[in-house]
Simulated scan of single mutants.
Amino acid sequence: MRVVSVVSTKGGVGKTTVAANLGGLLADAGLRVLLLDLDSQPTLSGYYALKQKTDAGAYEFIALNLTTLAEIVSKTVIHGLDLILSNDDQGRLSTLLLHAPDGRLRLRNLLDNFRLHYDLLLIDTQGARSVLLEMAILASDLALSPIPPEMLAARELQRGTLKLLSELEPFRLLGITPPPLRLLLNQVNAIRVDTRMIIRGLRETFAGATNISILETVVPDRVAYLNAASLGIPAHRIKTRQPRERHSPSTLEIMQTLAIELFPEWREAISTVNRYTETQ
């Protein structure tokens, strides 16, 4: 089972949208995908309608070490896409983990119970520095950080997410290697005059980095993602073809390209996701 955390210490960068749509695409590709919502503002938990909802969720999973799938895993209406709901609106988990001996390693130690049941675990995290965010990163094989090409987002990346990762380096002494970080240019508005300059600056900054890289895939700022969230479906089902006068890739093509870049081992399955017709 691959474990990917979608992370940023800045809110509003599109973490939940990326997690929901990436999970939906991979489920449509025939993979078994589990979403884990660790955000106290449970946007991911409400993205897809549920056909089977459990009473327990992320709180019981993390705080009580409850790993029985039937008790904590809800089923979405998307075949193959399951969800552990966020149910810690009072922020009790952060306090608990700060005082627990295994706090930052709690999630890592619980994942063996899921490995035979899922191909991918996607973790949506809080848009702020927290012990929950650190726990999610240390449990992951890969950290994916959406970043809009805006100056404020670029600055927060440096002083927030990158600083956090550097402070997790001492865990190497315990044999735990912090995951590589992949930066995803997200919500890209090509009309803005400073967009290309910021993108170029980001690519130059991380050109020689060993554990950090910027993905080639760029996710544009499109209404299709908002419409998909309103309808509760993956964005690639909204639009699979582009009008003849437009030359940019469709939402389906963008999400496929992103998924293949992140998970080349699943290229064949991802490439088969083409059966949904244009709905608007």
Rank of each mutant, 00 (worst) to 15 (best):
V188F: 13
R200Y: 07
D102G: 02
N21H: 12
A154S: 04
G11F: 07
A49K: 11
M135L: 12
K51T: 15
I198T: 09
G80M: 06
D221E: 05
A58L: 07
F114N: 12
G11E: 07
Q126C: 05
E253V: 08
N211Q: 03
G14E: 02
L35H: 13
H99M: 00
F114S: 09
I137C: 10
I238R: 06
K53G: 02
L138R: 02
F61G: 06
A136T: 11
A154W: 08
Y47W: 15
K75C: 09
M255R: 06
R196M: 03
L110H: 05
D39W: 02
P264R: 00
V218A: 01
S45I: 09
L66Q: 14
A224N: 15
L168W: 12
T240R: 07
E245V: 15
L111Y: 08
R196N: 09
F114P: 14
Y225Q: 01
E134R: 13
N65W: 13
Q256F: 03
S248R: 11
T210C: 00
V131G: 05
F171I: 06
L98D: 10
K51S: 10
P180K: 07
T277Q: 12
A209E: 11
M151N: 11
Y276W: 12
V18K: 02
G24Q: 02
E216Q: 10
H247S: 04
N113Y: 15
K10S: 07
M135Y: 12
P249I: 01
A70D: 07
P180R: 04
Y225H: 09
L152Q: 03
A58P: 15
M135P: 14
A56V: 11
L215K: 05
P148L: 08
R129S: 15
V73R: 14
R106I: 05
Q52D: 06
E265A: 08
V223K: 12
T272R: 04
Y59I: 01
R196T: 10
L111W: 09
L144T: 10
L64I: 01
E265Y: 06
L64F: 10
A27E: 08
V3Y: 01
I254H: 10
F206E: 01
A229S: 05
D39L: 05
E253R: 08
E71K: 13
V77P: 11
R182S: 00
R222A: 00
K239H: 04
M255Y: 15
K51V: 13
A128V: 14
